[in-house]
Amino acid sequence: MNLAEGVQIVSFGILAAMMLGAAIGVVLLENIVYSAFLLGGVFISIAGIYLLLNADFVAAAQVLIYVGAVNVLILFAIMLVNKRQDFQPLRRGWIRKAATAVVCAGIFALLSTMIVSTPWAISTATPAGDASVVVIGLHFFSDFLLPFELASVLLLMALIGAVVLARREFLPDDEADRAQVEALRLPERPRELVPSGRDETVN
């Protein structure tokens, strides 16, 4: 084992530990903001593993899209939502929990069978390396054209949907009135008016 391989194994160990720890943290931590930040950690570790697999373009794309966009949007959503609600215990909570457990177990079984059934033979083809961008581009426009175009259509639909949602200018009259009344009242404690100067007699 030469130096490069040692470095690779050590960094794989570190990245895997980071990824698993962060992923468990995302699920188990009470504080949702911590979970969101740890999700960023998971994405970064995945990007690191992509780098170890010689897929530097995918790694950079992972950082750009998942860390830079998705995770930031999640954080945005968390920080902009300001809704407090009392926790009410559900009456038949165990049904939900059982359903979740079944789904999780199913996914786990699916993934395990996939891992077991994959041959994991190391490909003999030379890694694309710096030319990976070209290879990816060629694949996108030849044998993966349909998924690529479908994904872009999906994104376009999402984009148009976002525009439609954001540009909703016409509100029904009564609803608009109600919204205005709600918006104008600031959520603050009712205060006693402090009398000042001549107005004392009025009070």
Binding site: F37, G40, I44, D56, F57, A60, A61, V63, L64, V67, G68, A69, N71, V72, L75, G129, D130, A131, S132, V133
Partner: peptide
Amino acid sequence: VGMGIFLWIALSSVTPI
């Protein structure tokens, strides 16, 4: 690096976090 300038764009997107 082969993806040079793309690395910069990817890295600069981490800053907002």
